[in-house]
Write a protein that binds this DNA or RNA. Structure first.
Lengths: 229, 229
DNA sequence: ACACAATATTGACAAATATCAATATTTATT
DNA sequence: AATAAATATTGATATTTGTCAATATTGTGT
């Protein structure tokens, strides 16, 4: 009889994820070959640098963002385990057009671009699954762009909370690993404004706040605020 | 001896474009089967509506945008002939997450999603070319998001002008089909601000303006302004 | 448990951009 | 060519959001 460490468990889930994408055992071995650990706050990739790898998130949480020269970030995606990062770099000008940072300590498999490309070209099922991911990424980006560019601050914050709750944590509780600053960057606002708007939402009983943890009490209200613009 | 109409010429170019994407003669016939004409200002697709088709632009110019409930648009892409629109709808929730409008009168081939999907699944070369387009779309969106969300108005307008000049018209002249409002929507600003900033750029000799036509005189200056943030 | 660092909060104020209104110019239509 | 419609321009003002500074709270490491 043997016992499983959390890492074994995680490996199994990763393999399952890759199997579902249509990868063979040997292909799975190839793409999980190189594993890197990132500490909280570390850069996973740097906007503007040469894009060598496609990455598979095995453990932890990442945020992806575009950054301006004054290092103000706009986060467009939070990534949870068993996701692929950097598909936008598979072709094109070979540079990351975004940056990515670890929100918690994280483990990432690095796959060389050419290796990833080879698998896509020879494995139809996998190519088709990757195209699904591209579709989703684009849809998500359109939604984020609409929120950040067309709405006022209250609606933006509601959009961010809805996104975190429904798409990322699949819970009405947004855990403390998400800071006020993360929500600010996700909403395209200053941190101080987030604090003020969260206080408004709290007094409207749309959310409750326990230390840093946010619980969504009235999702419908958030959605009404979101739509209002 | 026979003469060619502009339409014959255009058909030939369309077929060339599709051949380069790896489509066979019969596949080309399939995807060019249904052709629709849109007048200037007409909606090519409507944000939120059911996404039935992938579209191939054969003639004319389109703008794609996200729109809020007050009908304020943010344009993220201008499309020129021989481009594919709507790839983000190939999978996912079956609804357009963006709207698209004809800037000039345009001709568009409609391809049913399932038909398009079938070709992707059976034609590796085509799938690979489509993935290149996805990569480029994502990169373009990251760049637009960065501009709209992280920069001040002068830089935003410069980004829009650079985009139009380098990526779309491949000329230092931006033709009059692009209105001040189009530039405003592309920059995420109000039309009045575009007018003011264009006046600034003109007095700095970065551009010249003839009626509505804009000519870029000093691309380097625009790029410096763009970077400055 | 203590001290230090990081994050969150609050208020006052400044800056950027949108909005509104009036007018001019350009384009389209007859 | 004359008129109407659409687009562009300008100035004044309002609104929104960011910035700065001061303080409070929470988390971390010893």
């Amino acid at each position: 009889m043997r016992t499983f460490s959390p890492d074994d468990e995680n490996n199994k889930k990763l393999v399952d994820f890759l199997k579902k994408l249509g990868l063979s055992a040997s292909e799975i071995k190839t793409v999980t070959n190189t594993e890197i650990e990132f500490k909280k706050g570390e850069n996973v990739c740097k906007q503007g640098s040469f894009a060598s790898y496609i990455m598979i998130l095995k453990e932890g949480w990442l945020k992806s963002f575009v950054e301006n020269i004054h290092f103000k970030n706009t986060v467009f995606k939070i990534t949870k385990p068993f996701s692929i990062i950097g598909l936008s770099c598979l072709y094109g000008d070979n540079h990351y057009h975004f940056g990515c940072q670890a929100i918690t300590s994280s483990k990432v498999c690095l796959v060389e671009r050419v290796v990833f490309d080879d698998i896509i070209r020879t494995n139809n099922k996998f190519a088709s699954e990757i195209i699904k991911m591209y579709s989703n990424s684009l849809q998500n980006l359109y939604d984020r762009l609409n929120s950040i560019s067309n709405k006022q601050s209250l609606s933006k914050v509601c959009d961010s909370l809805i996104y975190l709750s429904e798409k990322i944590f699949e819970s009405n509780v947004i855990p403390i690993i998400i800071t006020r600053r993360d929500i600010a960057e996700l909403s395209g606002l200053a941190t101080e404004n987030i604090v003020r708007i969260l206080a408004e939402l709290k007094s409207a009983n749309a959310i409750s706040v326990n230390k840093k943890e946010i619980t969504i009490l009235d999702m419908d209200m958030l959605k009404r605020f979101s739509c209002f613009g």
